[in-house]
Amino acid sequence: MITRAIALLALTAIALSLFAGSGTASAQGGSQKTSGTVVGVATDENGALTRLAIADSGGNIIEFSVEPSTEYGLETQAGDRWVSTQASGSVEVVSRLRDHQDRFAPVTVTSENGVALSVVERESGKLETNLGFLFAVFAITWAGFFAYIFFLSRKQRVLQREVALLRASIDSTNDD
């Protein structure tokens, strides 16, 4: 019974997750904004940032190179904002991005032709709706609860019928 319920939940989750993917990049004035989590940071022999990779909510990994004018605006877990550019903070940004990677803290990269123009905390105004995921959670939750409650009520009916039949059978035996 439990195995069936778990299997039903798992199958529903898998089926709905197929519909739950969503795109992340959006074009704006020639540049492109990508929001996601940092999954890779590459440095040169001096420890300065050369490339970074972002995974968006659709699971796509996008790589960006940087140039001296690339701007950074990253926050610590406590909310302190650090602002710099590649020209002046190319080493510091590496530890900041790795901290984001460890915390799964999302960032927004504005880029042009694969070159990052800015890397900032994820911009709230550029959030993806991710409605597919939201739908998946509510559908799975209610499907799960309704299926289980339906199963319980059916089982209760079957058991009560069996009890009634046996009691009737006992009563008729006693009458005889």
Partner: peptide, 20 residues
Amino acid sequence: VVFGALMLITGMVWARPVWG
């Protein structure tokens, strides 16, 4: 068990777009 399974599934679906 039912609540626990849903806790894990809903957490995973939330984590995918937020954590990647």
